[in-house]
């Protein structure tokens, strides 16, 4: 059900929810918030494993934060501050889980289209975004090749022997790409 909601509604909802979380002052209100978030995950039919994967990155931070709040403040504020962070992460994760990347991209391009008025060409912007996505595997591949060359030269542990050829290679690739795009008349 959550999957079908328009992206804009979900993002606005996320922003509103995070603001509400910041305003909650009593542990009881926070308990209700926890219930609501659990309910949302259930409605979206997100499994326990997938839900845990969203919150997992903050688990140690949450423990450290809780301990610190306990030392410097009291138990209620420790509960409040820790659950606020965990819930915000969980909600953001829920939006990401229930939205296709392509739908988010469309929303992003639509959101940026008012920039047209300050001279930003929407076509150029979406070209920039898609070129970046395309370039990630190209640069990762380049990095792997530089690593191999490094091994062959016996300078495996030199960061300089890795990064300089990588950056020069990336720039060469970028400028060749720019030339190819320009040759196709993109600057006209």
């Amino acid at each position: 059900m959550l999957h079908r909601l328009p992206v804009g509604v979900k993002l606005a909802g996320l922003a509103a929810a995070c603001t509400v979380l910041l305003l909650l002052r009593s542990p009881w209100a926070m308990a209700v918030a926890v219930g609501v978030v659990v309910l949302l995950f259930a409605v979206a039919r997100v499994g326990v494993a997938a839900a845990w994967a969203q919150v997992r990155p903050v688990r140690w931070f949450a423990v450290a934060l809780f301990g610190m709040q306990l030392v410097f403040a009291d138990l209620p504020s420790a509960v409040l501050v820790t659950s606020r962070v965990v819930l915000a992460v969980a909600l953001a994760g829920l939006v990401t889980l229930t939205t296709r990347t392509s739908a988010m991209m469309t929303a992003l391009e639509r959101g940026l289209s008012p920039l047209r008025r300050v001279g930003v060409d929407p076509f150029r912007l979406s070209l920039l975004l898609s070129l970046t996505i395309r370039s990630v595997p190209v640069i990762a591949d380049l990095a792997a090749r530089v690593r191999e060359a490094q091994r062959a030269r016996g300078v495996e542990w030199s960061m300089r022997a890795f990064a300089v050829p990588l950056v020069v290679g990336a720039l060469r690739h970028a400028d060749a790409l720019g030339e190819a795009l320009s040759a196709r008349g993109l600057d006209d």
Binding site: G119, L128, I139, G178, S182, D187
Partner: peptide
């Protein structure tokens, strides 16, 4: 104005930052 050369450079550097996280 973001010229085509710059579109390519900016895109490749964004990808480079991503690749350095690998």
């Amino acid at each position: 104005v973001l010229r085509t050369y710059d579109v390519a450079r900016v895109a490749v550097f964004a990808a480079l930052i991503a690749a350095l996280g690998l």
